[in-house]
């Protein structure tokens, strides 16, 4: 830890906890972040529309349904319009950006999505 310390200080602006209590506290925060992420579906790709697409689409279903698609822009247009018809809340002003975001990130020629396997249950 002593060899890493100067590197960590420089790269993350982090103050290393100086006693066991502080360390426990920091670990608790990290754990809570991990716990929030644990079992969640994959994040949609980064980009200006990421948050809006995530909110609109994952209201009903998780992101894996989206990330496994490989569609042309025309096909994405049909899908977005169908989802709006079925209740997805998309501001009409954002419709074209939604379509662009999905078309750019999940085009026909992208390699197929590798989906996870159900893991054996762990005892927590």
């Amino acid at each position: 830890m002593s060899k890493l310390e100067p590197v960590l200080r420089k790269s993350f602006f982090v103050v290393i906890p100086s006693n066991a209590r502080d360390l426990q506290f920091c670990i608790l925060f990290i754990f809570l972040c991990l716990a929030r992420a644990h079992g969640q579906s994959p994040e949609l790709p980064a980009g200006p529309m990421q948050a809006k697409v995530t909110t609109a689409c994952t209201e009903c279903h998780e992101s894996r349904i989206i990330v496994q698609q490989r569609l042309s822009k025309g096909a994405w247009t049909k899908e977005v319009d169908k989802m709006v018809k079925w209740g997805a809340l998309v501001d009409p002003a954002d419709r074209d950006s939604f379509i662009d975001y999905l078309s750019v990130n999940f085009p026909p020629d992208k390699a197929p999505e590798l989906m996870p396997r159900v893991a054996s249950a762990k005892k927590h």
Partner: peptide, 16 residues
């Protein structure tokens, strides 16, 4: 890590 693990008791090994 979150992407790799989906826990559904009884369905181990199935593709999600």
């Amino acid at each position: 890590a979150a992407d790799q693990s989906v826990y559904v008791p009884g369905d181990e090994g199935m593709i999600v």
